[in-house]
């Protein structure tokens, strides 16, 4: 079953939102690579240095995710331009 063609051009806001969701998808990949980097040098490294590295990466991941999550929810998270069409199902429980 063929889908209706997707629009090529989007309004600036929807465009931004999609790029933020791309960033959200990228986060775990970035995190994984950062956490696997010690494999290259950790056979001679000290634990104290390792603590600094791991916790810095950790803190950066948290900060990055917070920024992206904030941006993504700035736009209404329940109305997505293309990704999602429904919004009623989750809205009733939505008193924040």
């Amino acid at each position: 079953m063929s889908r209706p063609p997707e629009p090529i051009f989007l309004a600036r806001q929807s465009y931004r939102r999609r790029r933020w969701s791309d960033a959200a998808r990228l986060m775990p990949v970035v995190g994984l690579i950062a956490l696997l980097l010690p494999l290259l040098w950790a056979d001679q490294a000290t634990t104290s240095g390792g603590i600094l590295y791991i916790f810095c990466v950790w803190a950066l991941l948290i900060a990055g995710t917070k920024i992206i999550a904030r941006r993504l929810t700035d736009y209404d998270p329940l109305i997505e331009t293309n990704d999602s069409t429904e919004s009623t199902e989750t809205k009733d429980g939505g008193a924040r």
Partner: peptide, 13 residues
Amino acid sequence: YLGPTLVMVGWWV
């Protein structure tokens, strides 16, 4: 703890 961190950080996926 790092595994779950990655999963949470990738919540969107």
